[in-house]
Simulated scan of single mutants.
Amino acid sequence: MEQNETQWDKLLKIKTTGRDDSHSDQYRYPYEPTPYCVLERLANGEWIGKKNTVLDYGTGKGRVCFYLSYQLRCRSIGIEYDERIFAGAEENREHAVSGGRTSFVHTTAESYAVPETADRCYFFNPFSVEILQKVLARIYESYYENPRKILLFFYYPSDEYVSYLMTQEQLLFSDEIACMDLFAGNNPREKILIFEVV
């Protein structure tokens, strides 16, 4: 597993391994990159293509953006509030093989105005349900202003996230990508839930 992580970072010419919880609190959770094997599984589906623009909420050092832009030729925008980690993402962009299709915004997720081109959103438990509510309101706003097919991807969702998402009238549960077989321990949270904005 570790070897795969390092190999992909090397291939993409980025540095994204490791965990950072120096600025986490009850609302914003630690930086921890999505494992590449999970991103491979996501990329192998039909959900994201080169015409899509992916928003990665709590992008950290930008792994999701760089990987998806490289593999799928899509555009990607990473949103990161932590100045120090954001600087790491920007530094990665200077060297990354897919840097041209990737951009980063230094702001809080809830204050980010969703561009009308964005139609895919990725979340790896970046923040609390309180913040998620505000982020979803921003996504719905963008959808109503410019109706389009918007898919939301939630990797390793907490029970709290799942309960909240299932009550959202504007969201339709669309699919699930099983990832449990990729790791030891049979953890039922090892999955990506996919919702469509309706």
Rank of each mutant, 00 (worst) to 15 (best):
H95K: 10
N92L: 10
V97C: 07
G99M: 02
A87V: 03
L72H: 04
R75V: 08
G100C: 04
G100V: 06
R101E: 09
R73Q: 15
E83F: 12
R101M: 07
I79K: 01
G88M: 06
R93A: 08
R84Y: 11
R101G: 12
Q71M: 14
N92W: 10
G88V: 00
H95N: 12
R84H: 13
G99V: 04
G100I: 02
F86D: 00
G99I: 07
G78S: 03
C74E: 02
R84I: 15
R84E: 15
E91A: 10
R84L: 12
L72F: 08
I85T: 15
A96Y: 08
G99N: 01
Q71H: 11
I85D: 07
G100Y: 01
I79V: 15
E91F: 03
V97A: 04
E90C: 12
G99K: 00
A87K: 03
R73E: 14
S76I: 10
Y81R: 14
R93W: 05
G78T: 05
E91N: 09
E80Y: 07
G88E: 05
R73L: 15
G88Q: 03
R84G: 11
A96S: 12
I79C: 07
A87C: 09
A87W: 00
S76H: 03
S76G: 07
G78D: 00
F86V: 06
S76L: 05
E91C: 05
Y81K: 14
R75E: 13
R84F: 13
E90H: 02
Q71D: 06
R93V: 11
G88T: 00
R101W: 10
G78Q: 00
D82T: 12
G100A: 05
D82V: 15
L72D: 02
R93D: 01
I77F: 01
V97I: 13
A87R: 02
A87Y: 01
A87L: 03
I85G: 08
R93N: 02
E83W: 11
S98M: 05
C74F: 07
G88A: 09
A87S: 13
E83R: 14
E94S: 11
E91Q: 10
E83G: 15
E91D: 12
G100Q: 09
S98V: 08
N92E: 04
E90V: 12
H95Y: 14
S98W: 03
G78W: 00
E94M: 11
E91W: 00
E94L: 13
R75W: 10
H95Q: 11
R73K: 15
S98Y: 05
A89F: 06
H95M: 08
G88S: 13
E94F: 05
E91K: 02
R93M: 07
I77H: 01
Y81V: 11
Q71N: 09
L72P: 00
Q71P: 04
R93C: 09
E80L: 08
N92T: 07
E83N: 12
I85Q: 06
A89I: 09
N92M: 09
I77N: 02
I79Q: 01
A89Y: 02
S76K: 01
F86T: 01
E94Q: 13
D82K: 06
I85V: 15
A96H: 06
Y81F: 14
G78I: 00
A87H: 05
R84N: 12
Y81E: 08
S76V: 06
R101A: 13
R75A: 12
G99A: 03
I85E: 04
L72W: 04
G100D: 11
R93P: 10
C74G: 09
